[in-house]
Design a protein around this nucleic acid. Structure first.
Length: 330
DNA sequence: TACAAACCTTCTCT
DNA sequence: AAGAGAAGGTTTG
């Protein structure tokens, strides 16, 4: 007997184009997408292509506009302009923030001269928890490869574009399934394999994604409490917790104190810390509190700008650059 | 409470 | 050519 069902294309791949007014001084796609906040964006022609909100986005910009193509299982009721605008927090005026930071911090302008248009991305919290667990003692290139591996091993294909497959980020449940740690060990995740598997299992026990979402500022969680909860997860210490708070829980006062911010703090703000070689929890606390006082309620955003100015400072890394180019030529 | 040392792997520089 | 040192840290003793 033939059962006739209406055809429903649940996973039909569709494409939509759009354009949002946004000046290039408010947003620099390159430093924002590839400065170490997200690990899922890659160069594509004169723009960038990556995955978020379960779709593949291709972004370009000019002086006045941000243009996008979004591909995947698109649905009619969603406003993709708004989804992209929310991702970049385009409702926040970076220019106004910078004016305040220049006024309160005599060192800030130097950073701004090197880099502008850094925005704090509003990312998915599950993706951020596991991505930043991968980030410990690691570099951006390798982290990106590991995040990609998590997606292909434990999640689903969104669609295929120009012969390349794109995947969504795995669910907590998928990462909590059997044998995840061993599989990740085989993929050279090292000691992070155990952190990922155990954090996933831990999160399932706590209530999954909902538990994480309840730490969001919009759900009335405080920064201090969100951070306190996050560091109970294996592989999540103060720095990773601050990354999660800042980039996916709306706590813009969170300041991840990594080795670069530690160097900057010693050089320009807290010279008495020069005697210390590594960031201890106490020093993390001291630097965070000092910079929050200096930069105000969006201090984490200022931190991101200062951080990007440092790592993108060409004058500070001429040696390795010259060496690379010389090797290529010969 | 406060430090080291260990932890996995990759890449770079010497 | 081989090995130390660092890479946007966390855990353990």
């Amino acid at each position: 007997m033939n059962i006739i069902r209406p055809k429903i294309y649940i996973n039909e791949v569709r494409t939509k184009h759009g354009k949002i007014a946004c000046s290039s001084s408010e947003l620099d796609l390159g430093v924002t997408l590839k400065g170490g906040q997200s690990f899922r964006w890659f160069d594509h022609d004169d723009g960038y292509r990556g995955v978020f909100d379960g779709c593949v986005w291709t972004l370009t910009q000019n002086d006045t506009h941000l243009s996008y193509t979004v591909q995947g299982p698109l649905v009619d009721y969603k406003n993709y302009d708004k989804i992209l605008s929310d991702y970049f927090r385009l409702d926040v005026c970076l220019h106004d923030l910078c004016k305040k930071w220049i006024a309160s911090d005599q060192h800030f302008k130097k950073s701004l001269n090197k880099t502008n248009g850094v925005r704090i991305l509003n990312q998915d919290v599950v993706e951020n928890v596991f991505s930043f667990i991968c980030s410990s003692n690691n570099n951006i290139q390798r982290i990106s490869g590991m995040v990609q591996k998590l997606c292909t091993l434990f999640s689903e294909k969104i669609c295929s574009i120009e012969g390349k497959d794109y995947y969504s980020f795995p669910s907590i449940e998928a990462l909590a399934s059997t044998d995840v740690e061993n599989k990740l060990r085989e993929e050279k995740f090292g000691y992070r394999a155990g952190y990922i598997a155990n954090t996933a299992k831990h999160l399932v026990q706590l209530g999954g994604k909902e538990w994480l979402s309840n730490l969001h500022k919009e759900n009335n969680a405080s920064y201090v409490d969100a951070r306190k909860q996050l560091v109970t997860l294996p592989g999540v210490g103060p720095k990773v917790a601050d990354c999660i708070c800042l980039m996916s829980l709306g706590h813009l006062e969170a300041i991840p104190v990594d080795t670069h911010i530690f160097q900057i703090a010693k050089a320009s703000y807290l010279p008495h810390l020069k005697q210390y070689k590594t960031v201890t929890p106490k020093i993390h606390e001291e630097i965070g509190n000092y910079l929050r006082e200096l930069w105000g309620p969006s201090a984490g955003w200022a931190q991101a700008l200062v951080f990007c100015a440092k790592i993108n400072d060409v004058t500070a890394c001429t040696t390795s650059r010259n060496k690379r180019e010389r090797t290529k030529e010969s």
